[in-house]
Amino acid sequence: MLNIEKDFEEIKIAMKIDHEDDDGGVKRAFISAVATVKGAIGRDKSAFYDQDTDIVELINTAVIMMANHYYDAASATIESSTANGTLREYDLGYTSIISLLKAEYKVFKEGETNGG
């Protein structure tokens, strides 16, 4: 999984941020996104986030999507007005990735080799 200290420039590139004016804001958004993704998937199996599989790329994608949204909009939702008021929804791309990762997390066995 991406690491804020080791992979900071890669994270900024993925978020399409080419300045250093708000590196603190980028770091806050990324750290918050990691917490959000881990909270949505689960925290009990720490090795799940460090596997050497394509699952880690899905995790990274979800984190980048959420971090980018936190950074740009300071919110994890999309707002739209309806006749009944304002509706707040999670982005479909993020939600579908999290759903897939939750299923993978559920069957993941801590301590087993998961290369791939």
Results as ranks from 00 to 15, higher is better:
residue 1 M to T: 09
residue 116 G to L: 14
residue 6 K to G: 07
residue 94 Y to R: 00
residue 46 S to Q: 14
residue 29 A to L: 03
residue 116 G to N: 12
residue 97 I to L: 12
residue 82 T to A: 15
residue 63 V to N: 08
residue 22 D to W: 02
residue 22 D to G: 00
residue 48 F to T: 01
residue 18 D to K: 12
residue 36 T to D: 06
residue 33 A to S: 12
residue 61 T to E: 14
residue 103 A to E: 14
residue 56 V to E: 02
residue 78 I to T: 13
residue 31 I to V: 05
residue 93 G to R: 10
residue 14 A to P: 09
residue 74 A to C: 03
residue 41 I to E: 01
residue 62 A to R: 00
residue 91 D to V: 12
residue 86 T to I: 14
residue 27 K to P: 00
residue 11 I to H: 05
residue 100 L to E: 05
residue 11 I to K: 04
residue 2 L to Q: 06
residue 40 A to Y: 04
residue 26 V to A: 03
residue 113 T to F: 13
residue 106 K to T: 14
residue 54 D to W: 13
residue 22 D to T: 01
residue 21 D to H: 09
residue 102 K to C: 04
residue 116 G to Q: 14
residue 87 L to A: 04
residue 93 G to P: 02
residue 43 R to E: 11
residue 97 I to Q: 01
residue 14 A to C: 11
residue 30 F to D: 01
residue 111 G to E: 00
residue 29 A to C: 06
residue 82 T to G: 08
residue 115 G to H: 07
residue 51 Q to D: 05
residue 44 D to N: 15
residue 42 G to T: 04
residue 19 H to M: 08
residue 67 A to F: 05
residue 64 I to C: 02
residue 69 H to F: 12
residue 109 K to G: 08
residue 53 T to Y: 01
residue 49 Y to S: 03
residue 108 F to C: 01
residue 15 M to E: 01
residue 32 S to Y: 08
residue 36 T to F: 07
residue 23 D to H: 07
residue 85 G to M: 06
residue 2 L to C: 00
residue 35 A to G: 08
residue 16 K to Y: 12
residue 64 I to S: 04
residue 10 E to C: 08
residue 33 A to M: 03
residue 16 K to H: 14
residue 52 D to A: 09
residue 40 A to L: 11
residue 104 E to F: 04
residue 114 N to I: 02
residue 13 I to E: 15
